[in-house]
Simulated assay, not measured.
Amino acid sequence: MIEFRPLPDDHPDLAHSPMLRAALLTLQYAQEHGSIGLTKTKAFKRVFVHWAVEHFGWPGKGAQEMFRYNKVINEYEFPPLEVLHYLLISLRLGRHYKSEFRLTKRGAELAGAPGRLFAELIPYFVLRIDHASYARFDERPFGKWDVWMNVINVEADHGTTEAALFQAFYGEAKDWHTAGWREMAAFSSCVLRPLEWAGLLMETREDGPGKHVCHVFKTPLWRSALKLDTDNMLRPIALQ
């Protein structure tokens, strides 16, 4: 069982969620400017995409990285925004009206309520979205969220690696430099990355000659926002 605890709007751990931060900024931008312009294909116009790249502070996709090789960026080239746009429309926090994205009454109410917006946005994003669709990767890992999150709750409690988590679920040692890289990519894209975008996990990477290690840790938001069946299996953190 997965239960998301309600959090007050001023809870400090909400700051760990990149998706929540991006949603708040987008809703507040639309509120301040009245709307966000759309292209003929109903994507956000480049002027807002550039604003989003500069203000979201997305891990690994900040303005310096994104504009290093491309001076013009479309919505589909900034996947977090593309996914967020879909979420806001699906949850009816915004709507398309002619050539504009406009807030609904509910979207306007949640633009200043981080705790309530988290409760609406993050469970839907993590548990209901087909994460393979925006990963542009056809393969999906075998499993379901109840099992994934309860096992990660224990295995990553004091930190682990991407490869160790994969082995815990599937009993095989796979990694990016082995023949099983596609299975690892599907697991990383459809399980670990959504949890990182939600702000529940944090990843750090070690890259070197012939070496690629991804360390995985639970954020404080995981501990404050989630109630899971395996919570009683967690070992207390030793104080030194």
Rank of each mutant, 00 (worst) to 15 (best):
G60M: 09
V126D: 02
M149S: 01
T230W: 01
L117Q: 06
K40I: 12
A198Y: 07
F44H: 03
R136H: 15
P6C: 02
R128A: 14
R95A: 14
M1Q: 11
V216E: 04
I36N: 01
E155W: 09
H96W: 13
A168G: 04
E196Q: 13
P209D: 07
Y170G: 08
P79W: 06
L117C: 05
T178C: 03
W176H: 14
R223K: 08
S133L: 13
R128H: 12
H131T: 06
W145M: 04
G171I: 07
W51L: 13
A238G: 02
L7W: 05
F169E: 00
R92N: 15
R46V: 15
F78W: 07
L195I: 03
W197P: 10
M1T: 14
Q64A: 14
W181L: 09
W145K: 03
F166P: 00
T219V: 07
D146Q: 10
L234A: 06
P6V: 05
K218W: 06
M1N: 15
T204H: 08
R92L: 14
A173Q: 13
L226T: 01
F125K: 01
P236H: 13
E109N: 10
E3T: 12
K218Q: 06
G199M: 01
L121V: 01
D207H: 12
G159L: 09
K98W: 09
A168H: 09
P59N: 01
R21M: 11
Q28F: 01
W51N: 09
D207I: 15
E109Q: 09
H55S: 13
E109W: 10
A22E: 02
G115Y: 04
R95K: 11
Q167L: 08
H177E: 15
S224I: 08
F187N: 04
E139P: 10
I122P: 03
I237R: 09
L14G: 09
L121P: 07
L38G: 01
E77I: 04
K98V: 12
P79Y: 08
Y97D: 15
G199S: 04
V154G: 00
A43Q: 10
T26G: 03
